[in-house]
């Protein structure tokens, strides 16, 4: 399935089958969660990143079912197709953004998502305590979402942000690497 086809599918579902919600509601709710975590963990940003990832993981595990039901797409033939499906259908129908898939490694196991627009980060300016700019990944929940969702469809991945415009970088980039396809595991024998 080509990138263009994935884009068309995403566009179509977004237009016809998705309930829309006010963007500020999402932005402010997510912003509040992150700000509260920063407060609760006493500005220990590593811990905040970890918590966001965990929250995302729990969301992803449920969201994949919704995604498959809404999109009706089948199994992806390879990891490249999976990447397009995530970027052009997944992000499109849930956040109405379509990040660019790029920077593939030669073994086709690692790629980057470049976000031109990140609705979670509207209005946000990171705290100027001299650390948040270097330590906090504001949108880290998205990494967890991908990890949780793909795990449910037999892909173990690792995802992390490598740059964020909030930190003053030129782009917002997430690196996604396939660790392995999870084989069906037999339950431990009870003999």
């Amino acid at each position: 399935m080509s990138t263009q086809k994935a884009s068309r599918i995403g566009e179509e579902i977004w237009k016809t089958r998705i309930d829309k919600v006010n963007a500020e509601l999402v932005t402010l709710t997510y912003g509040t969660i992150v700000a509260q975590l920063c407060q609760d963990y006493d500005s220990n940003y590593q811990e905040v990143n970890k918590q966001l990832d965990k929250m995302g993981y729990n969301i992803g595990m449920r969201l994949i079912e919704d995604f498959l039901a809404k999109s009706g797409v089948g199994r992806c033939a390879n990891f490249r197709e999976t990447a397009d499906m995530i970027a052009k259908v997944g992000f499109k129908i849930f956040l109405n953004v379509a990040p660019t898939v790029t920077n593939w490694t030669s073994d086709n196991n690692q790629f980057s998502l470049i976000f031109d627009d990140n609705p979670l980060a509207d209005f946000v300016e990171l705290p100027d305590d001299g650390r948040a700019q270097d330590e906090l990944w504001f949108s880290n929940i998205l990494c967890g979402v991908l990890r949780g969702a793909l795990e449910m469809v037999q892909m173990q991945i690792e995802a992390h942000f490598v740059s964020d415009v909030l930190r003053g970088d030129d782009t917002t980039e997430m690196r996604v690497s396939l660790v392995r396809y999870i084989e069906d595991e037999m339950p431990p024998e009870d003999d």
Partner: peptide, 19 residues
């Protein structure tokens, strides 16, 4: 308004944002 919408800005706090 944009600055006040930032989740890390508390109402009534000094506006330190360089932006």
């Amino acid at each position: 308004v944009k600055t006040a919408m930032s989740p890390f800005y508390k109402q009534g706090m000094e506006i330190k944002s360089p932006v």
